[in-house]
Amino acid sequence: MDWFLDAFKYKYVDFSGRARRTEYWMFMLFHVPFIFILAFLSGMMDEAEWMNIPMFLLVIYFLMSFLPALAITIRRLHDTGKSGWFYLLAIIPYVGGIILLIFTVQDSESTTNKWGPNPKTPNTDEINEIGKPLSD
C-alpha cells in the first residue's frame, strides 16, 4: 500500500527518472482493482436514482489518479530504456496495450541510461558504510 500512496504523495507528477518493476506493479495492484470495483458498483446502481455515488467516486478517483498513473508508467518505460512517448502506443486498439504491457514487464536496463542510474543498484555510499561502527 505504501507504493500506491507514495505515487500520490511524493511523485504525483514526477515524469523524470526511472521506476522499478516493483514500484510500478505495486501501484497497479491497488489502482486497477479500485477502478474495477467502482465501475462494477456504478453499473449495479439503478439509473433512476438521482445520484449515482459510485460513478461520482469513479470520476473523482480517475481525475485524481490520472497524472500519477501516467507518471509512473512513463518512469517505468524510462527504466526499460524507452521514451515516455511509447505510452502513445496505448492508442492502438488491442495491439498497443499488449506492447505496452510487454514493455512494463521487461527488466530494467542494468546500466545508467539517459533518464538516470539503475534504481536496482545500491547506493555506493551505503555500501561503503557496511561494517563501519555507527557514530553516536
Rank of each mutant, 00 (worst) to 15 (best):
T111D: 15
L77R: 02
R18P: 02
L70V: 11
L38N: 03
D14V: 11
L134P: 05
G84D: 01
Q106W: 12
R76L: 00
M55S: 08
H78V: 00
I72P: 04
Y10K: 14
D79S: 03
F62M: 15
M51V: 13
I99Q: 08
D125E: 14
F86H: 08
T22S: 08
R76W: 02
L70E: 07
E129P: 04
I102F: 12
P68W: 08
K120W: 10
N128E: 03
E47Y: 15
F27D: 00
N123G: 03
N113W: 00
G96C: 10
F36D: 09
P117F: 13
M1V: 15
E47Q: 14
L63C: 10
F4M: 08
L134D: 11
L57Q: 09
I127M: 12
F40R: 10
L134A: 13
I98M: 02
G97H: 07
M51N: 10
P54A: 04
A19M: 00
F30S: 09
Y10M: 11
L63M: 13
E23C: 00
L63Y: 07
F66W: 12
F56V: 08
R20M: 03
P133H: 03
M55A: 11
M55K: 05
T73P: 06
P33V: 03
E23T: 02
I99D: 04
I35L: 14
P68L: 12
S135P: 13
T104N: 10
M64Y: 15
L100R: 02
K11M: 03
N52M: 09
N113F: 02
F4A: 10
I91V: 14
D107L: 11
R21P: 01
P117A: 14
F34E: 04
L63I: 14
T112I: 12
N118K: 08
D79V: 01
R75W: 00
L41C: 08
S65P: 05
E126Y: 10
R18E: 02
I130K: 10
Y94F: 14
E47R: 13
L88H: 05
S83C: 05
L57D: 06
M1T: 15
D136I: 15
F66C: 07
T73W: 02
T73V: 05
P119Y: 04
E129L: 12
K114F: 00
